[in-house]
Design a protein around this nucleic acid. Structure first.
Lengths: 195, 195, 195, 195
DNA sequence: CATGAATGAGAGTTCATTCAT
DNA sequence: GATGAATGAACTCTCATTCAT
């Protein structure tokens, strides 16, 4: 694929991303993407086989961006409590974001498409989150900022709560207050109680 | 609608339930339901307007069943810890159930269909769970079995974890061990630590 | 058919008439009529085979009413010019009536259904009109009120103008002023010019 | 839409015209047109949205043809009486044409579809007729061939008679003799009576 | 007579996918 | 590579009509 094609591919993915954000995954047709890209009907098929294919690639790009922003968080020097707060705030933003998320599309996609653990982008993201949090916790325990008996289980717990908040936000709806309450509750569970 | 029609309606809902379990929500067409029910194309429309309509009714039935089984749990006399364990085990079963859940269909349905808080079946179910758990906790605190500063927030926390486990089971996959770990973690957070 | 059935039949025709007025002929389904009559689906078929059948009967009733009102016009003693004016005003009302006419339904019906001259209700109505007008003209000529060389051709001419106005009102739309202008023009063609 | 598509569009309109002539407007389905054109079900939708859309375009083409033939009539040099006769004969032909007219379809179409005066093709055609006739009359009055006090009203009168004849031909049926009689009557009303 | 559930044909419409240019 | 016309499968939905009760 030449330089030019790569550019076109990129363009398609950007436009397709908007479509998935707007309509979720299952509601998006190849026609929708074609129209959003101002490309020819047959043209799209030169780059992607079907909406699954397109969405996978959109997701990969997305992941790269997330990784970058994660790194940014970690590169800042601060106390572990601060880092965790930063991370949780980032999550809060994503949970409450209304019209600019691939969340719904992503869920819909992985309901239907099954992958091996190795190739499972969503799973990887989850595991990365667990790893990050457990490392923060471990570090916090070391500095005496946190108290935690089993950092891994706790990290997973935090991730499940976040996941629970995310899906609830997209289904039953959730207030900012509730999110704050929950994040605070998580943090409180870690902090050494000062008596 | 006479007695007989009511029976047929019931039959349709049962068969439709199976279809939704198998295919989720978005993938189900009126044709699918017609075929599962061995009725005529037009026949289905005598009872339901569209798949939304059918699914709503399936969900209502489902809810009634859940309510009944919840009552069963509560009617048994036992310690609050036992009741909570019972409840969590029930949830565990639902989380790990493979091919007999409306979970995916339900998520798909509520991604797309928005309701007022009042009419939101899924939300009601969530709130019922919160209420149940917080009552158990409060009771447990009274008997001295549990320790908890804010039962409501904790109850919500438990529900979000459960929700997180449920969605994760249907997307990234989850092992029984992980579920057990998390449920135990929740329970541990409540029990008075014996030193 | 017993007394009771005759009543029901009558009711159906009245309700069906409203439906035809509202929707024309081609747009009306048996279902529409059933719903307007609050009768059972199969019930309608006990009285009428199809919408054609229903409409024919509606039209017959309608015709009887028209005949009665025509008679009323003629029974009043007055000059022929007055009678003609009365008749034309009656026509004007029908031409300009907006939402209470079978006009469109009637046209639609006779576009599709062909009858022998003998059974052609619409044709009979036309011929009745011609007969009436030509008699009035002849009478007017006798009294010296009118001038006319060929009353029959003129009567037909008047009927065609009326027909033209009626169809135009329902297709391209027509103002009251235009109708008045035309009716006056017709009358003027008959009156002896006073110099 | 390229050259080729334009050709196909044209083909569709021609075939569709035949269908409308045969079945009127309301009876024609997209399927009918598809079958008449030997294209695929979806193919037709590339060019037209629905039967309304198709019919509108058929009508526009038709109108262009009429305009051309009108011009032809006017370009011939002759007395105004001759021109009027020519015009009326053209109308006569259209009134009596049996199986090659869009008349019924057109009426059915405009019964149901309402337009603003500006966009009303049928109305425009009517107004064009009025204009043409009134110009002929005015010219005739100038040359002394005709006598007429109000050319516009008379022109409209002639158009309404023609309209009445047309609709009557399609509903109650009408003989050539009757048409001739009426056209002669119209002409006589214009000619200076030689005493 | 009367009901209304049930059937099945048929119309509308949308798209994934192909293919000649 | 790129285009976009064309196809045909699949779905939704509506009714005329029948028939057991």
């Amino acid at each position: 694929m030449g330089e030019k094609s790569a550019q076109k591919r990129q363009l398609i993915l950007e436009r397709a991303r908007d479509v998935f954000i707007e309509k979720g995954f299952k509601n998006v047709t190849m026609k929708d993407i074609v129209e959003a890209c101002e490309i020819s009907r047959g043209g799209l098929y030169l780059y992607f086989e079907n909406t699954n294919d397109v969405f996978m690639e959109v997701l990969k790009l997305e992941q790269e961006d997330t990784d970058d922003s994660l790194e940014a968080v970690l590169s800042e020097e601060s106390t572990v409590a601060d880092i965790l707060t930063l991370f949780l705030n980032e999550q809060k933003r994503e949970i409450l974001k209304k019209d600019d998320t691939l969340t719904i599309a992503t869920y819909e996609f992985f309901f239907v498409n099954k992958f091996s653990k190795k190739d499972h982008i969503m799973r990887k993201k989850f595991e990365l989150g667990v790893k990050l949090i457990s490392e923060i916790i471990t570090a916090g325990v070391a500095t005496g900022e946190f108290y935690c008996e089993n950092p891994l289980v706790m990290a997973m717990n935090i991730m499940f709560v976040l996941e629970g908040l995310k899906i609830s936000a997209k289904t039953i709806g959730i207030s900012e207050k509730t999110v704050d309450e929950q994040l605070l509750y998580l943090l409180d569970g870690l902090l050494i109680e000062e008596e």
